[in-house]
Simulated assay, not measured.
Amino acid sequence: MDFGLIVESLPALLKGAGLTIVISLIALLFGVIFGTLFALIRMSPIKPLAAFGVAYIEMIRGTPLLAQIFLFFYGLPYVFQEMFDIPLNFNPLVAGTAILAVNSSAYVAEIVRSGIQSTPRGQTEASLSLGFTPTDTLRYIVLPQAFRRIVPPLLNEATTLLKNSSLLSTIMIVELVRVGQMITSRTYKPFEMYLAVGFIYLCMTIPMSLIANRIEKRWKVA
């Protein structure tokens, strides 16, 4: 095994890992924003709106992320060109981050919905009887309690998102896996490269899993 190659390639791999982290953080941020929105849409008393929320969440969760990446990045430009004769070109980095955010939002929506629905209904009814508006009840009564249940699975979603970002190598984003592929194509030593890539992923995901477990135990989330 050529450990010298691993050491020599470490700066490039760490640079790729840095981009992986940045992409994942931005995607998670927007995933949380849109996921919370779609959780509220799914829980809406307006049936058509709730049905739209359910359809969105199930469609995203029920299809592979890789298929979503190809459909968005390669499929949409083809459709716009063929049907409307409009050239449509995406920046791979922006498109990849957006796709990850959309994918994550569906899973975050279910996490948020479960957290909100875990709050005893009696507290909501008591809040409304005291004159709180539904919005204030959600903001001051429900969400603070749901937050304790949401955080651990949200950290697990962040770990999954970090690993799923490796699929963006298929659209030539130079994140960690793509860097490993590029070095492998030059050196013809895939074992060393992918061993190093896997180890770097472990170094990024294990701390997140430990933090999630620690929070879950400390807050005694059921």
Rank of each mutant, 00 (worst) to 15 (best):
Phe80Ala: 02
Pro153Thr: 07
Met204Gly: 10
Ile46Glu: 03
Ile150Lys: 07
Leu88Ile: 04
Val151Ile: 01
Pro45Trp: 02
Ala98Gly: 06
Ile33Arg: 13
Leu168Glu: 03
Leu161Ile: 03
Ala12Val: 02
Ser209Asn: 12
Leu28Ile: 08
Ser129Gly: 14
Ser169Cys: 03
Glu125Ser: 01
Gln68Val: 13
Ser104Cys: 12
Phe147Tyr: 13
Ile69Cys: 10
Ala146Lys: 08
Glu157His: 08
Asn213Ala: 15
Thr133Ile: 13
Phe38Met: 04
Pro190Ile: 11
Leu40Glu: 12
Glu8Thr: 13
Leu168Thr: 03
Thr20Cys: 08
Leu14Pro: 13
Leu37Met: 10
Leu161Gln: 05
Phe52Ala: 04
Gly96Lys: 01
Ala50Val: 00
Phe84Cys: 12
Pro11Phe: 14
Ile116Trp: 00
Ser104Met: 13
Arg148Pro: 01
Ala27Ser: 11
Ile173Glu: 05
Lys189Phe: 10
Met83Arg: 05
Ser127Cys: 12
Val221Leu: 12
Ile171Val: 09
Ile86Cys: 08
Glu82Leu: 13
Gly18Cys: 03
Gly96Asp: 11
Val79Phe: 15
Ile99Ser: 07
Gly198Asp: 06
Ile111Lys: 12
Val174Leu: 10
Phe199Trp: 10
Val221Thr: 08
Phe34Trp: 10
Gln81Ala: 05
Phe73Trp: 03
Ala222His: 07
Ala196Glu: 01
Pro92Gly: 06
Met43Trp: 02
Asp85Leu: 11
Leu162Ile: 07
Leu19Gln: 04
Ser129Ile: 15
Gly4Glu: 15
Pro153Lys: 11
Val108Asp: 11
Lys163Tyr: 12
Leu202Cys: 13
Pro144Phe: 09
Pro153Cys: 06
Pro77Gln: 04
Ile200Ser: 08
Arg148His: 10
Ala109Asp: 00
Ile46Pro: 02
Val112Phe: 07
Thr119Asn: 05
Leu167Phe: 15
Lys15Pro: 06
Leu138Asn: 11
Gly35Ile: 02
Thr135Asp: 02
Ala98His: 00
Ser118Gly: 13
Glu192Phe: 03
Ser209Val: 10
Ile206Ser: 09
Pro64Lys: 14
Gly16Tyr: 10
Leu10Asn: 07
Leu10Cys: 02
Lys220Phe: 11
Leu10Phe: 09
Arg139Pro: 14
Thr97Arg: 00
Asn156Cys: 12
Thr20Gln: 08
Met83Phe: 15
Ser44Trp: 02
Arg42Leu: 00
Ala39Lys: 00
Leu76Tyr: 08
Ile57Arg: 00
Ile41Gly: 00
Thr205Ala: 08
Ile33Glu: 11
Lys163Phe: 06
Met1Ile: 09
Ala98Arg: 01
Gly62Phe: 03
Glu82Arg: 12
Asn89Ile: 15
Pro207Tyr: 12
Val221Met: 09
Val22Ser: 05
Met172Trp: 15
Leu37Lys: 06
Leu202Ile: 14
Ala196Met: 01
Glu216His: 06
Ala55Asp: 00
Lys163Arg: 15
Leu128Trp: 14
Phe34Asp: 04
Arg139Leu: 09
Gly31Phe: 05
Thr170Glu: 07
Leu210Arg: 13
Leu162Lys: 04
Met59Cys: 01
Leu19Thr: 02
Leu29Thr: 11
Ile173Gly: 10
Thr137Glu: 13
Ala196Cys: 06
Ser24Leu: 07
Phe132Leu: 06
Ala95His: 06
Leu100Met: 15
Leu40Thr: 02
Ile60Asp: 00
Gly35Arg: 02
Leu162Gly: 01
Ala146Asp: 03
Leu40Tyr: 09
Asn213Thr: 05
